[in-house]
């Protein structure tokens, strides 16, 4: 069984500073990390590997420094690492990104399962997973919170759709996007980290995947959407009555008043 895990390197969103004058984030203000949702995707793959002996390839599209994210994935249990990198990919929206990733997947070769995180913390769209499945013309399941069962020919997952929980069983190939609820990613051992430093990351450029591409242009030129304008939103605020710790009791009475006023008191 061959599993491909999609990985994105993202800025550390809780540390990154925002330059409101320039209307963009100051990328130098914070480091980069593996998109946290992708660690759940990778952990899912590693758990399957432990059960079935599957082979794991990780694939990332990004600049050269994304090699670090791929090496971390190797430390966490991936067998092969592929970096899809070319200046021509710059400025890609989700369509151009998914089409490029799908072409890279087909260039890597035969696969059974593709696993991605629910979304990236810097883009927040949750679109790249389902769109990659569409470009590959395979089924996908999004919001996967549990792997119910898996064997050589079939996989059963739990997903949340239509305000309900569903189980779905698929034959391969399949792409799934996983939520944080699916597992808790384990930390790599020191030894694994050391070994991963020397891991080989295979480079893929536009020329390598071109034959498999389903769009005419990549990067910004191959992106149907663009940012036309950036606006710094007006700060939202209300008139606030603040109670100090000593005034707690009066705050509680106020809350009681509100509950009665809004007719929210239970009988």
């Amino acid at each position: 069984m061959h599993i491909i895990v999609l990985i994105k390197q993202v800025p550390e969103m809780d540390k990154v500073l925002f330059d409101s004058e320039k209307g963009r984030i100051d990328r130098k203000s914070a480091g980069v990390e593996v998109n946290p949702f992708d660690l759940n995707a990778l952990e899912t793959a590693v758990a399957i590997k432990e059960q079935t002996g599957a082979e794991i390839s990780v694939l990332s599209m990004g600049p050269n420094r994304a090699e670090e994210a791929l090496k971390e994935a190797v430390a966490r249990g991936a067998d092969n690492a592929y970096l899809l990198s070319d200046q021509k990919f710059a400025g890609a929206d989700t369509i151009a990104t998914s089409a490029s990733l799908a072409a890279a997947v087909e260039t890597i070769g035969a696969y059974d399962l593709i696993i991605a995180g629910e979304m990236s913390v810097d883009g927040d769209t949750a679109q790249v997973g389902p769109q990659t499945a569409e470009f590959l013309n395979i089924n996908h399941a999004a919001y996967v919170s549990e792997l119910i069962s898996l064997n050589e020919s079939e996989i059963t997952i739990k997903t949340s759709l239509w305000q309900a929980n569903y189980s779905k069983s698929f034959s391969y190939p399949l792409l799934i996007t996983v939520t944080k609820d699916i597992n808790t990613p384990r930390l790599p051992s020191f030894k694994a980290k050391l070994k991963a430093r020397k891991a080989e990351v295979k480079n893929l450029t536009l020329a390598d995947i071109k034959e498999k591409l389903k769009i005419d242009k990549v990067g910004f030129k191959g992106s149907p959407t663009w940012v036309d304008n950036i606006v710094v939103p007006a700060e939202i605020s209300r008139k606030t009555k603040v109670f100090s710790e000593e005034e707690k009791e009066s705050a509680y009475h106020k809350i009681k008043e509100i509950l009665i006023e809004k007719n929210l008191m239970e009988d």
Partner: peptide, 12 residues
Amino acid sequence: FSENILAHIKSD
């Protein structure tokens, strides 16, 4: 970007 800005996006 963590809701710091509003992006106005168009499609061609």
